[in-house]
């Protein structure tokens, strides 16, 4: 018993002399490290984490920006389900995500496959297709887009030459959302570049073997390309889904705070902004923001669940 304790003591004693010195060096390193981190650290604490915690608190209060917040418990969350405009904004956003994400990804993949071939001027085409994404969130772009889809503007005229009379989409409740979906699809640069990288990874031997076996182009695409790049598709799907839930700038320019025409572009983010900064109901707006986070989280979780069924990782034994 005693020997053991004494042993331990000597052990501890033998370690001790080195301990403080080592620790001093470590903590010195740590200090410098934290100092170098400080711009980022201060940023995330003051500008991200702090506001997030505050907004979580505010979501349980009635807060009009002028008077101090009044605790109302879950009231804000309950009211959402009776709020017709909230439900409408959820529907609009869900419809948009359901349309914009697949269309944009399909376009991006198609362009990536075309650009994957060896041909002259490939670099130019890549730049040309990536271009629209660079000016992605710009206000001017949304204004031009709206102008293009007005009465007697480019799109209306083109459609009329093939006998389709829709009038301006910007003022037509049946087409206004589609107009924004097309805007998203046009900005396919980012997923396209990722798809291109994925396509480069597919081993050439697979195609050669398939060709020998007499598989056509479509067959090769379906049975080789798609499964081989499924992790990339999944990655793009996640990214685009999350991004699409947060669309704001273009929708605000096209539809304003009321989601014109007739509330068909009343996105969740637009309604949130309008409630908070237009009606000064910050508590309700904060609660909406947390509901959005929960909603996006659920959708992401769901996507991960389904991914097990269709995403193939090479080296996976399945």
């Amino acid at each position: 018993m005693t020997t053991i304790t004494s042993n331990r003591r000597t052990d501890a004693g033998s370690v001790r002399p080195a301990g403080p010195r080592k620790q001093a060096r470590r903590s010195g390193d740590g200090l410098a490290g934290y100092l170098f981190l400080s711009p980022w650290l201060i940023g995330i604490l003051l500008l991200t984490l702090g506001p997030m915690v505050t907004s979580l608190y505010l979501s349980f209060t009635d807060y009009d920006l002028f008077n101090s917040p009044q605790w109302v418990g879950l009231d804000n969350y309950q009211r959402m389900f009776d709020d017709a405009r909230w439900l409408k904004s959820v529907r609009v956003t869900a419809l948009y995500v359901a349309l914009a994400v697949p269309i944009k990804l399909a376009c991006a993949l198609a362009v990536a496959v075309l650009l994957n071939n060896e041909r002259r001027g490939r670099a130019f085409y890549r730049a040309a297709f990536y271009g629209p994404s660079l000016i992605g969130a710009s206000v001017s772009l949304a204004i031009v887009w709206k102008a293009m889809f007005s009465d007697d503007a480019v799109v209306d005229r083109l459609l009329r030459t093939v006998g389709i009379h829709t009038g301006g989409w910007a003022g037509n409740p049946d087409f206004s959302l589609l107009m924004l979906v097309l805007l998203a699809a046009w900005q396919l640069g980012a997923p396209m570049v990722i798809f291109l990288a994925g396509l480069k990874q597919v081993p050439k031997e697979l195609y050669e073997a398939a060709e020998v076996d007499g598989a056509g182009r479509w067959r090769r695409f379906r049975s080789i390309t798609l499964p081989m790049i499924s992790p990339v598709i999944f990655f793009n799907l996640l990214l685009e889904t999350i991004n699409s839930f947060q669309v704001f700038t273009s929708a605000y320019i096209v539809g304003g705070p009321n989601g014109q025409p007739a509330g068909t572009t009343l996105f969740y983010t637009i309604y949130l902004f309008d409630r908070g900064f237009g009606d000064y109901r910050m508590g309700y707006a904060s609660a909406m923001a947390w509901m959005l986070l929960a909603g996006v989280g659920l959708v992401t979780l769901f996507l991960f669940r389904t991914a097990r069924g269709w995403v193939y990782y090479s080296g996976d034994k399945r």
């Binding site: 709206k146 009465d151 009038g167 910007a170 003022g171 037509n172 014109q260 025409p261």
Partner: peptide, 9 residues
């Protein structure tokens, strides 16, 4: 028509 009014804003 309202669709015109919305577009010219």
């Amino acid at each position: 028509p309202i669709e015109k009014g919305v577009q010219i804003k």
